[in-house]
Design a protein around this nucleic acid. Sequence first.
RNA 1: UCCCCAGUAGCUCAGUUGGCAGAGCAAGUGGCUGUUAACCACUGGGUCCGCGGUUCGAGUCCGUGCUGGGGAGCCA
Length: 464
Amino acid sequence: MANQAPPSGSAPRLRVAALLNASGPMENVLVKGWVRTVRDQKGFAFLEINDGSCLKNLQVIAEGNAGPYETAVTLTTGCSVQVSGRLAASPGKGQDWELKAEEILLIGACPESFPLQKKRHSDEFLRTIAHLRPRTNKFGALFRIRSSMALAVHNFFADRGFVYIQTPIITGSDCEGAGEMFTLTTQAKGETLAPEKDFFGKQAYLTVSGQLDAEMYALALGAVYTFGPTFRAENSNTSRHAAEFWMIEPEAAFADLNDNMALGEELVRHLASHALEKCPQDVDLFARFVDKTLSQTLDNIINNDFVRMTYTEAVEALQKSDKKFQYQPMWGKDLQTEHERYITEVYCKKPVIVFDYPASIKPFYMRMNPDGKTVAAMDVLVPRIGEIIGGSQREERLDMLEARIKEMGLSEEEYWWYLDSRKFGTAPHSGFGMGFERVLMMVTGVSNIRDVISFPRTPGNVEF
RNA sequence: UCCCCAGUAGCUCAGUUGGCAGAGCAAGUGGCUGUUAACCACUGGGUCCGCGGUUCGAGUCCGUGCUGGGGAGCCA
């Protein structure tokens, strides 16, 4: 089918983005898209057509009492149309080019019950019509940025020799240690089946992380990353949590915690500048209407080194501050949201990497430091969003790892394959998880995670 | 899961001390020869979230449930 010539007499379809960037007038132009507004004058009418290729609409002018004009005045906001005509310089303000319609055909009508109007809607309302919200300027822009950012992630790792791997979504390991898991079963409603009689012969779950699998591939291919969906059944009702989200998890052999922190910082900075460079119009919409401090925030991320401080230093800084915290900062306790916000927004005023956390508050696979109290963990915290990356150098010493598994009451048999990687040619390695939606919140200023995912899954919500 | 706030026209909201249900936008109709969320005029539009209670009378007060939002915990 590639390069097949269009049927004789009809022009190939062009996208609005290309037409708005035209270098000169064009004859025989064909556009297909959705009508955003119809402005009917006496004897002529303006249409604004959007086809998703860019934020801006193409202005179509339908003149004359017959043909295009007759059709134009019957069109309503939301309908789909095809328009053919010629692209000409626009005498009006606001656009360089406009399409003088020679023929307008209605493809799909849109009755007045169409819920989207030519005005701003609240995010809450748009969430109730998540199937239609991509037709708004804001969500169109968001999902063009999301697509571009995904590509930027792949390019970033490809440029650095990381191999893209896909780890299973279905897992049998019930103690990955990152929160509640969704159980998976083929049993019928109301039926109670023992796990050993179920599809996999044991209890199965949706993955909460591809990390343990990714480690196996890092210890073979040198450096790998995953980029896929992740599931958490935590009954978590906040603007920063979803039950299904996308996570990027790089894992590199022969890399220590410093390499890990450098990679994370470089990635966050790369993504921030990518958004500004590759999606300027779409990002500008967010800078103007969603978060007025967005440009400043992104500049801050791009142009400054991230502050690095140990967990111990962070706790000391919190204890020395005049600010009254609801939770007293104390060595050995996890940093609370209010603590993270103080560190990034007040104390450092820029992204911060906190590392070397107490072993007691971190999972078994993190590498024990020589002090015997802390592990080589690191979190990248950004102002307003909080934790965007969480990672560590992994415990590569078999005896230490076995001891930690035992200490935390986990089953060594369950992890036989994981332990094998330390038995056979073990090597220092490290990696992290980065929440893709949180990155999108960072580059757009959108404050609710439900508005950077196509169809968000949260407790009590699986509509669409 | 806990704390706080909200739910009134298609949307965004106002509604005074408990006393006839309101505005803007949208929609419909008409007008307008270059508009830019066009503009101007007119018209239609209500389960005041559900249930129960107090009262002569409840959008308004009380109880309860549901839904949504903000914050917390947990985390990416």
